[in-house]
Protein backbone atom coordinates (compact mmCIF):
# COMPACT_ATOMS: atom_id res chain seq x y z
CA UNK A 1 0.00 0.00 0.00
CA UNK A 2 1.18 3.46 -0.83
CA UNK A 3 2.53 5.53 2.09
CA UNK A 4 0.93 8.61 0.71
CA UNK A 5 -2.37 8.67 -1.13
CA UNK A 6 -3.72 10.95 -3.80
CA UNK A 7 -6.15 12.31 -1.19
CA UNK A 8 -3.22 13.10 1.14
CA UNK A 9 -1.59 15.11 -1.63
CA UNK A 10 -4.84 16.93 -2.38
CA UNK A 11 -5.21 17.77 1.32
CA UNK A 12 -1.64 19.05 1.58
CA UNK A 13 -2.06 21.08 -1.59
CA UNK A 14 -5.14 22.69 -0.12
CA UNK A 15 -3.35 23.52 3.16
CA UNK A 16 -0.44 25.04 1.24
CA UNK A 17 -2.80 26.87 -1.15
CA UNK A 18 -1.20 25.20 -4.16
CA UNK A 19 -3.56 24.61 -7.05
CA UNK A 20 -3.01 21.22 -8.69
CA UNK A 21 -4.67 19.55 -11.66
CA UNK A 22 -5.88 15.91 -11.36
CA UNK A 23 -2.87 14.85 -13.48
CA UNK A 24 -0.48 16.67 -11.23
CA UNK A 25 -2.06 15.06 -8.16
CA UNK A 26 -1.59 11.58 -9.64
CA UNK A 27 1.96 12.37 -10.61
CA UNK A 28 2.87 13.91 -7.27
CA UNK A 29 1.28 11.08 -5.27
CA UNK A 30 3.42 8.53 -7.11
CA UNK A 31 6.55 10.62 -6.85
CA UNK A 32 6.15 11.42 -3.15
CA UNK A 33 5.49 7.77 -2.45
CA UNK A 34 8.76 6.85 -4.12
CA UNK A 35 10.62 9.51 -2.15
CA UNK A 36 9.12 8.28 1.13
CA UNK A 37 10.07 4.74 0.17
CA UNK A 38 13.65 5.83 -0.43
CA UNK A 39 13.86 7.70 2.85
CA UNK A 40 12.33 4.74 4.66
CA UNK A 41 15.51 2.78 3.98
CA UNK A 42 17.20 4.94 6.62
CA UNK A 43 15.03 3.21 9.21
CA UNK A 44 16.70 -0.05 8.32
CA UNK A 45 20.05 1.22 9.57
CA UNK A 46 18.78 3.36 12.47
CA UNK A 47 19.02 1.26 15.62
CA UNK A 48 17.88 1.78 19.17
CA UNK A 49 21.21 3.23 20.24
CA UNK A 50 20.95 6.10 17.77
CA UNK A 51 18.76 8.95 19.00
CA UNK A 52 16.62 10.79 16.46
CA UNK A 53 18.11 14.11 15.49
CA UNK A 54 16.79 17.26 13.87
CA UNK A 55 20.19 18.83 13.32
CA UNK A 56 23.39 17.46 11.78
CA UNK A 57 25.62 19.08 14.40
CA UNK A 58 25.45 18.12 18.05
CA UNK A 59 25.23 21.68 19.28
CA UNK A 60 22.84 23.35 21.68
CA UNK A 61 22.24 26.74 23.33
CA UNK A 62 23.27 28.93 20.43
CA UNK A 63 22.00 32.35 21.52
CA UNK A 64 22.50 35.95 20.51
CA UNK A 65 22.57 38.94 22.84
CA UNK A 66 19.38 40.98 23.07
CA UNK A 67 20.74 43.87 21.03
CA UNK A 68 18.82 45.80 18.36
CA UNK A 69 20.41 46.13 14.94
CA UNK A 70 19.09 48.31 12.11
CA UNK A 71 16.10 46.89 10.25
CA UNK A 72 15.23 47.30 6.60
CA UNK A 73 13.60 50.57 5.68
CA UNK A 74 9.92 50.51 4.83
CA UNK A 75 10.81 50.90 1.11
CA UNK A 76 13.30 48.02 1.25
CA UNK A 77 10.86 45.80 3.14
CA UNK A 78 8.11 46.41 0.61
CA UNK A 79 10.35 46.34 -2.47
CA UNK A 80 9.54 42.72 -3.28
CA UNK A 81 5.83 42.94 -2.49
CA UNK A 82 3.48 42.22 -5.41
CA UNK A 83 1.14 44.89 -4.06
CA UNK A 84 1.32 47.50 -1.32
CA UNK A 85 -0.74 50.30 0.17
CA UNK A 86 -0.41 52.61 3.17
CA UNK A 87 3.16 51.39 3.91
CA UNK A 88 1.83 47.85 4.22
CA UNK A 89 1.82 44.63 2.23
CA UNK A 90 -1.45 44.33 0.36
CA UNK A 91 -2.91 40.85 0.07
CA UNK A 92 -6.14 39.54 -1.43
CA UNK A 93 -9.17 39.12 0.77
CA UNK A 94 -9.20 35.97 2.82
CA UNK A 95 -12.56 34.26 2.80
CA UNK A 96 -14.01 32.04 5.48
CA UNK A 97 -11.19 32.62 7.91
CA UNK A 98 -10.40 35.00 10.70
Amino acid sequence: MAAISRDDVAHLAKLARVEMTPDELDHMATELDQILGAVKRVQEVATADIAPTSHPLSMSNVFRDDVVKPSLTNEEALSGAPAKAEDRFKVPQILGEE
Binding site: L72, N74, R88
Partner: peptide, 29 residues
Protein backbone atom coordinates in the same frame (compact mmCIF):
# COMPACT_ATOMS: atom_id res chain seq x y z
CA UNK B 1 17.78 41.77 15.83
CA UNK B 2 14.84 43.95 14.76
CA UNK B 3 13.46 46.33 17.39
CA UNK B 4 10.24 45.43 19.21
CA UNK B 5 9.01 48.91 20.08
CA UNK B 6 5.21 49.27 20.16
CA UNK B 7 3.59 51.79 17.83
CA UNK B 8 6.39 52.28 15.28
CA UNK B 9 5.57 53.20 11.66
CA UNK B 10 4.35 50.12 9.72
CA UNK B 11 7.01 47.75 8.38
CA UNK B 12 9.99 49.67 9.74
CA UNK B 13 11.02 46.91 12.15
CA UNK B 14 11.52 44.03 9.75
CA UNK B 15 14.42 42.18 8.16
CA UNK B 16 14.96 39.12 5.93
CA UNK B 17 14.53 36.78 8.93
CA UNK B 18 11.17 38.06 10.18
CA UNK B 19 9.91 38.63 6.63
CA UNK B 20 10.72 35.03 5.81
CA UNK B 21 12.94 35.88 2.85
CA UNK B 22 14.77 32.93 1.28
CA UNK B 23 18.08 32.01 2.86
CA UNK B 24 17.63 34.01 6.06
CA UNK B 25 18.74 32.20 9.20
CA UNK B 26 17.19 32.70 12.65
CA UNK B 27 19.25 32.90 15.87
CA UNK B 28 17.57 32.60 19.27
CA UNK B 29 17.48 35.64 21.57
Amino acid sequence: SCATEFGAEPNTQTCPVCLGLPGALPVVN
